[in-house]
C-alpha cells in the first residue's frame, strides 16, 4: 500500500532519501552510501516506530519546505535546526503528529549540517542493489525536486509519542591506527593527535578535506591501492588529511594513517567548513 504523505514545496539545498546503506557491493566498486549521520536517522526511526535503517530524508542545511498530503507521524533529528510547522516552532528528538494540510519548514540552523526526517513506515523509493540511498555520482536516483511527492508504504496508525536524548556532537574523534602507519614515523603520527585540524570548504558526502599541521610520509605518499572505508583518514602528498565518508571511493592509493572509530562516525555527518577537529588514539 502506497500512501502519499508530502508534497515538496521547496527541496532546499540538497535533500536525499537515505537508509542504512548499500551492503555487499564494495567488491564491485560501489560505495556503501546511506545516512552520513546514521545515529540521527536511526533515532528518527525509533521515534516513529520504524526498524533501524528505514529510509528517511537527509536534509542539508535549511530551506526545505513540505506540505503534508495526509496525517502522519514524523520525527526530526540531527542538526540543531529551527523547524516550523504552520509557522510554530516544534521540538526535535520527539515524535510529532503532522496533520494533512500543514506546512513544515526547516528554517535556521544553529549547529550541525544535516537534519533527518523520519516518517512512520519510511519513505518509498526504488531499491537499487539492496538500498534506496540516493547517490547521484553513480547514477542512483537524484536529489529531491520541487513538486515531487513523497510516499510511505504503511497505512496511518497511531504510534506512541516518544522523546529521545540528542547525542553529543563534539568534534573529537577516536582513531584506530593503520593499515598504512608504516608510512609514517611516530613523530609524524603524533602530529595528528597533538594538533587540531580545520574542516575546509572541500567537503561532500564523499569526503572531508582538512587543513592543519602537515603530516609527512616515509618514502612518498602512495601505497598500492587497497580497500578504504567510511572513516578512513588518508594522507596525500601535501600532508593534509582527507576523511572519507559514506559515498567515498571503495579503494584508494593514498596512505591511510588510521580509521575513525565506528561509534564516532555519526558526528562526521554534522561537520561543516570552519569546524575544528581533534583526534585521539584508540586501540
Amino acid at each position: 500500500m502506497i500512501r502519499q504523505v508530502f508534497l515538496i514545496k521547496n527541496p532546499g539545498i540538497y535533500t536525499l532519501i537515505q537508509d542504512g546503506g548499500r551492503v555487499g557491493y564494495r567488491s564491485f566498486g560501489v560505495p556503501i552510501s546511506g545516512a552520513l549521520d546514521e545515529k540521527a536517522l536511526n533515532q528518527a526511526n525509533y521515534l516513529v516506530n520504524n526498524p533501524k535503517g528505514y529510509p528517511g530524508l537527509e536534509i542539508l542545511s535549511t530551506g526545505m519546505e513540505l506540505l503534508a498530503l495526509a496525517d502522519c507521524y514524523v520525527a526530526f533529528t540531527g542538526a540543531l535546526a529551527t523547524i516550523l510547522v504552520d509557522k510554530k516552532v516544534v521540538k526535535t528528538y520527539e515524535t510529532l503528529l503532522i496533520k494533512k494540510g500543514q506546512t513544515i519548514i526547516i528554517k535556521t540552523l544553529k549547529s550541525g549540517l544535516r537534519t533527518y526526517l523520519g516518517v512512520h513506515g519510511g519513505f518509498v523509493s526504488d531499491v537499487i542493489m539492496g538500498s534506496v540511498s540516493i547517490n547521484e555520482q553513480i547514477l542512483i536516483g537524484s536529489r529531491l525536486k520541487r513538486d515531487e511527492v513523497l510516499s510511505t508504504c504503511k497505512p496511518f496508525t497511531d504510534v506512541l509519542i516518544k522523546t529521545i536524548k540528542k547525542p553529543v556532537y563534539d568534534n573529537h574523534y577516536k582513531v584506530i591506527l593503520g593499515p598504512d602507519n608504516h608510512k609514517f614515523s611516530s613523530k609524524e603520527i603524533k602530529k595528528l593527535f597533538n594538533n587540531s585540524y580545520e574542516v575546509t570548504n572541500k567537503l561532500s558526502r564523499m569526503g572531508i578535506n582538512l587543513l592543519g599541521e602537515k603530516i609527512s610520509h616515509i618514502n612518498g605518499a602512495d601505497v598500492l591501492s587497497h580497500p578504504v572505508m567510511f572513516g578512513s583518514i588518508q594522507i596525500p602528498a601535501n600532508g593534509q588529511p582527507i576523511i572519507l565518508l559514506a559515498d567515498g571511493q571503495t579503494t584508494g592509493g593514498y596512505a591511510v594513517i588510521g580509521n575513525i572509530c565506528g561509534d564516532d562516525l555519526y558526528k562526521l555527518g554534522q561537520t561543516k567548513a570552519g569546524d575544528i577537529m581533534t583526534f585521539s588514539r584508540s586501540k
Partner: peptide
C-alpha cells in the same frame, strides 16, 4: 592483519602488484 576501524579486518598479502 590490521584493524581497519571498529568493524573491518584488513589483510595485506603484498605491497606490490603480483
Amino acid at each position: 592483519y590490521a584493524k581497519m576501524g571498529s568493524n573491518h579486518v584488513f589483510v595485506r598479502f603484498s605491497y606490490v602488484i603480483d
